[in-house]
Amino acid sequence: MATVSEAVTARHSTRAFVPRAVEEGVLREIVDVARYAPSSGNLQPWKLVVLTGAPLERLKAAVSHTLAQAPRGEGMGYPIYPEHLQAAYQARRSQCAEDLYATLGVARDDRLGRGQQFVRNFRFFDAPVGMILAIDRSLEVGQWADLGGFLQTLMLLAHERGLATCAQACWTLVHRTVERQLALGPEWMVFCGVALGYADPDQPINGLRTQREALSEVADFRGFAQ
């Protein structure tokens, strides 16, 4: 099994999976341990729906129908990015997209190719397991931070067991369909989807590794002896 440091540095978003089932016992074990992720006031503000087989196919079919009627989706349940993203962040986002499509041989002006790849999000990239992570609508920004901690914990635990994941904020674009299909109840808001399974090592897209800023750019150490 991977150490925490190894899992953090080696885990990456996987967008191509082999058709190998994941045992229910393994999934239950991962989620059971992820429950121990910290949260402010111990609110534990998350709800996770784990799907495979027929329930997963029904969700994908419902979303496919929605997108056939409304290709741009149903409107976002929450804004993934601010309307005016500052230049430094936009540069990172653009570079990530360029690098991703380069692995597929999809050119910048190939709108059809890019669109086809984006739609694969809503099939969980054909992963054998799809998860939907939701948060109570009544909660505040601090609880959204807690939700991120739970999500990271979940993905690291999956990596420890040889599984690959991809967190997908785009599921908020079809939040109404997802909430209705999964009968989440009006109090729950879809935060993201998570594709999970065994990575296909032969697919170039799985070789993508996004860049990280230097330590000196993200952390300022003060009061330490030089």
Score class of each variant (00 low, 15 high):
50 V>E: 05
39 S>V: 02
16 A>M: 04
37 A>I: 04
83 E>H: 12
122 F>N: 07
44 Q>E: 08
74 E>F: 11
77 G>Q: 05
114 R>S: 12
40 S>H: 13
90 Q>H: 04
93 R>Q: 15
26 V>L: 13
16 A>F: 10
97 A>Y: 03
119 V>W: 02
112 L>F: 03
66 T>Q: 12
124 F>D: 04
23 E>D: 15
27 L>I: 05
39 S>F: 10
46 W>S: 01
77 G>K: 02
99 D>Q: 14
26 V>W: 00
63 V>C: 01
110 D>Q: 06
103 T>C: 07
113 G>N: 07
87 A>D: 15
51 L>W: 01
27 L>F: 02
99 D>P: 02
108 R>Q: 14
86 Q>V: 14
116 Q>R: 14
82 P>K: 02
93 R>F: 08
88 A>F: 09
72 R>K: 08
104 L>T: 09
43 L>V: 08
77 G>Y: 06
68 A>S: 15
105 G>W: 03
55 P>F: 03
100 L>H: 11
58 R>I: 01
106 V>C: 08
49 V>L: 08
34 A>K: 06
59 L>F: 06
43 L>K: 09
84 H>M: 13
117 Q>R: 14
37 A>C: 09
120 R>S: 03
66 T>F: 01
73 G>T: 08
46 W>L: 01
71 P>F: 06
76 M>P: 04
121 N>V: 08
91 A>N: 01
69 Q>Y: 02
19 P>C: 08
97 A>F: 01
46 W>Y: 06
74 E>Y: 07
44 Q>H: 05
74 E>K: 00
79 P>C: 07
96 C>K: 11
112 L>S: 01
